[in-house]
Simulated scan of single mutants.
Amino acid sequence: MAWMSWTWPTAVFIMLIFAAIAVLTIMDLRSAPVTRKGFLPIPTDRGDRFYIAMLGLLVINLTWWGVTDATPLIGLTLSLIWLGVTMRWG
Rank of each mutant, 00 (worst) to 15 (best):
M1A: 10
W3D: 03
W3P: 06
W3C: 02
M4W: 11
S5G: 10
S5H: 10
S5N: 13
S5R: 12
W6S: 01
W6T: 13
T7H: 12
W8E: 09
W8A: 11
W8R: 02
P9I: 08
P9E: 12
A11V: 07
A11E: 06
A11T: 02
V12I: 14
V12M: 11
F13E: 13
I14V: 15
I14H: 14
M15T: 15
L16R: 01
L16T: 07
I17N: 09
F18N: 08
F18V: 14
F18E: 03
A19K: 07
A20V: 00
A22I: 11
A22C: 13
V23S: 02
L24S: 09
L24G: 04
T25M: 12
I26N: 05
I26P: 06
I26V: 08
I26M: 04
M27G: 03
D28N: 15
D28A: 10
D28E: 13
R30E: 12
R30N: 01
S31M: 15
S31G: 08
A32H: 08
A32N: 05
P33E: 07
R36V: 04
R36S: 14
K37Y: 11
F39D: 03
L40M: 09
P41K: 15
P41L: 15
P43Q: 13
T44M: 07
T44G: 08
T44I: 00
D45F: 02
R46E: 07
G47F: 09
G47I: 10
D48H: 14
D48M: 02
F50D: 03
F50C: 02
Y51F: 08
Y51K: 07
I52C: 02
I52Y: 01
M54N: 01
L55T: 12
L57V: 12
L58D: 00
V59F: 15
V59I: 14
V59M: 14
I60K: 05
I60H: 04
I60W: 05
N61F: 04
L62H: 04
L62A: 00
T63P: 11
W65T: 11
G66R: 13
V67Q: 11
V67R: 06
V67H: 03
V67G: 01
T68V: 13
T68P: 00
D69E: 12
D69F: 13
A70P: 02
T71M: 09
L73S: 10
L73M: 13
L73D: 07
I74G: 06
I74D: 02
I74L: 11
G75A: 12
G75W: 13
G75T: 09
L76K: 08
L76S: 04
T77V: 09
L78M: 09
L78V: 00
L78H: 12
L78E: 05
L80Y: 08
L80G: 08
I81P: 07
W82I: 02
W82F: 15
G84Y: 12
G84C: 10
V85I: 09
M87N: 04
R88Q: 08
R88K: 14
W89P: 07
W89F: 11
W89R: 14
G90K: 07
G90R: 03
G90M: 00
